[in-house]
């Protein structure tokens, strides 16, 4: 099957910054891909190059096998997008805004009504854009992206700045779309939950480069097989040497809070062994928890920073 979008060795620099430094991507039909990275990672620059808004300094971008140059009209028809920030005209209503954009694709008014239903703004169709909440505005932006039933959807931080509820509303619209169509999507975000919830393929980028990519499962499993186990003990006064200087296990112990952390590479064998070790030392477990690895942990282990820094 021919890929829907191919990005090959793309570079882009601004005066002093190398925003994108050699990125390759490949998206197939129906695939939802997340570009996950902190602010300034180069996500916007990359998607805007795919959108044909910016031109790469080096490398090639093919959409349905076609370059942007000379195919603008055709490619604009295929792509629905929402930019990181767009302020639609304040004093136009939701319906009027949709009708304007629908006219660019030669779509009938019925399609606008349909879209308003999908983005759940039918009640707000006569409200001025200026009076919409942040979440409603993002949904309108999404609605405009979806108007033409695009084969390719490119969304730049569609939920940034929204509260969890409003974010979830956007997610539901996109999950619904995934079920009902074979649209391909690239979504940029710095929320790991968003990438996890919506996308089958996640590309972690930082400083204009891909750090790691794969499905969520691949990314989390392929983590040197390390598991972090947190525990607290009934006994308060323990000699720290017993835990910290331990040769068998890599234990960290905080005497003040009474919390410990141990890194185990193989839970099945090593966890019972660890429990046995505590037992033989007459230490009773009060609480034990196996920490779930997250994309943020992965990002931290790769860069030493957090996604939200």
């Amino acid at each position: 099957m021919k890929p829907v979008i191919e990005v090959k060795g793309v570079h882009k620099s601004f005066k002093t910054v190398k925003a994108v430094r050699g990125i390759d991507l490949c998206i197939n039909e129906g695939q939802f891909l997340a570009l996950l990275g902190p602010n300034g990672a180069g996500k916007t620059t990359l998607v805007e190059m795919i959108e044909g808004i910016q031109k790469p300094d080096k490398g090639e971008i093919l959409i349905m096998g076609k370059k942007w140059k000379g195919n603008e009209n055709e490619l604009h028809q295929l792509i629905g997008l929402s930019l990181q920030e767009t302020y639609y005209t304040d004093k136009l209503t939701v319906l009027e805004t949709l009708k304007l954009f629908a006219s660019f694709y030669n779509l009938p008014v019925e399609r606008c009504l349909e879209i308003m239903d999908i983005i759940r703004l039918t009640e707000k169709r006569k409200a001025y854009v200026v009076n919409l909440s942040g979440g409603q505005r993002q949904r309108l932006s999404l609605g405009i992206a979806l108007l033409s039933n695009p084969k390719i959807l490119l969304l730049d931080e569609p939920t940034t700045g929204l509260d969890p509820l409003a974010r979830r509303e956007v997610w539901e619209i996109l999950l619904d779309l995934k079920k009902k169509s074979n649209t391909s999507m690239i979504l940029t975000t710095h929320y790991m939950e968003e990438a996890e919830q919506l996308c089958d393929y996640i590309v972690i980028i930082d400083n204009g480069e891909i750090l790691k990519e794969g499905t969520l499962k691949q990314l989390l499993e392929d983590n040197n097989g390390e598991n972090i186990v947190n525990f607290t003990l009934e006994e308060v006064h323990i000699s720290p040497e017993l835990l910290i200087g331990n040769k068998r296990f890599n234990i960290q112990w905080d005497a003040v809070t009474g919390r410990g952390e141990v890194v185990l590479s193989q839970l099945e064998n090593e966890l019972p062994e660890f429990l046995g070790f505590l037992h033989t030392n007459n230490l009773r477990i009060k609480h034990l928890e196996c920490q779930r690895k997250t994309l943020d942990d992965l990002f931290t282990s790769l860069t030493g920073r957090h996604l939200h820094e």
Partner: peptide, 11 residues
């Protein structure tokens, strides 16, 4: 307001 940019990204 980036509206121009958004509009020319359509046909």
């Amino acid at each position: 307001k980036k509206l121009l940019r958004r509009m020319v990204a359509t046909p």
